[in-house]
Design a binder for these strands. Structure first.
Lengths: 210, 210
DNA sequence: TTTTGAGTTAAACGTATGTTTCAAACAGTT
DNA sequence: AACTGTTTGAAACATACGTTTAACTCAAAA
């Protein structure tokens, strides 16, 4: 076996390059070159480019999924019948993300960029893949949000949820650029934690507007 | 001259297809086929695909830009020294957008998609094009927002502004997809106006959180 | 009438893409 | 050491792309 698994090297390279340039704009040759792997390796190990894209998602979403599930489970075991506030829910999610991305600062931005692309990319196989593969987690979080915002109409809650998703995906995915602007315009540095600290109150206030 | 100008037919087709499938995923052949125009016409009239993308955007941005400027001008002439609320500012922008996009539903998605790409795409031609084309309007709106939120720290206002931008860009650019989900999950149809009607209170509440 | 020049057309060009092929190299088992 | 299934390697394949070319159309100017 090589120093690092071929599959892993491909996933690492693809993750970075997809986030940087998008899916259609990133060729398998660029990926395999950066991964220092033969071109055919992608089709051998993953089957197709589409499958590689989905694999990139799964590697991130899998651990994230389990972490959110387990932390929610343990919380519900300790505090049954408790109703989480929006802030609580967001903190749970944010903490899981921080845990999954820890060690690789760019990983959060990368994932958010992928998420944004997945939503925008036309009749994407990506969105359907995400929807079917991670429906139960989505529903569980959505159910918590529903309990936390009992006065909201379902449709409006749906839209506000995606407003939150958009605010997070957009800013966190271009965090690098935005932080550079902040440093230039305000002569201040922002850590990732500070940005998340700004974000969560914004989201919470937004979802219970009026 | 044909029934409709070749240039216009190309722009119309490109606008629809870009919104539907994205830029990289839309080929010139698809565009020229739908426009019922020869393939070479794009390169003859616009020079390149990049230039076509910018032209599509300019056709939207030009009128939008002028509309916001003039409506702000006339308001300031009628009510000098008045301080606009966040809701007022958002309504000005939304109304200009509605005016520019009226009659063609995809235009809003196009614009938002371009905006997202411009922010995400590291050093693409889009970002520079938008920055130079967009700057003075951006600064004017930002100044109004500053007056409307005097208690906010500049850095936090900067972030909250981009949270708003993100929520809008993300949801409006994938509005087609999201509306389909709403129709499937809630058995309800959402008009664009309704979505914007949901969006603005969310944004306003978010930017003055706490 | 002839000339001009912008507009259109069909075809081709060069390049880049995702994918496939098949022989060579490898690792583990007997 | 020989066999076996798995992984890699270099090359080719078929296709799709953006772009360019050069012949052609045709209305208006000279």
């Amino acid at each position: 076996m090589a120093q690092v698994d071929t599959v892993t090297r491909i996933l690492d390279a693809a993750e970075e390059l997809f986030a940087e340039h998008g899916f259609a704009e990133t060729s398998l040759r660029t990926i395999t070159t950066r991964a220092d792997v033969n071109l055919a390796a992608v089709n051998y190990h993953f089957g197709s480019k589409k499958a590689l894209i989905q694999a990139v998602f799964s590697r991130f979403l899998g651990p994230f999924y389990k972490l959110v599930e387990s932390s929610l489970d343990s919380h519900e075991k300790m505090h049954p019948d408790s109703i989480l506030s929006i802030e609580d829910i967001l903190r749970f999610v944010a903490r899981a993300m921080a845990n999954v991305t820890q060690g690789d600062r760019n990983r959060l931005a990368i994932f958010m960029r992928l998420l944004g692309l997945a939503y925008n990319q036309g009749q994407g196989h990506l969105r359907k893949f995400l929807q079917t593969e991670y429906r139960s987690l989505f529903r569980r979080v959505m159910a918590l949000i529903t309990k936390a915002t009992p006065d909201l109409q379902p449709v409006e809650r749906f839209w506000r949820f995606h407003f939150m998703l958009g605010a997070a995906a957009f800013t966190l995915s271009s965090m690098e650029n935005l932080r550079a602007i902040v440093e230039h315009d305000f002569d201040t540095k922002c850590t990732e934690e500070e940005v998340v600290g700004y974000l969560l109150p914004f989201l919470a206030a937004g979802i219970r507007a009026k």
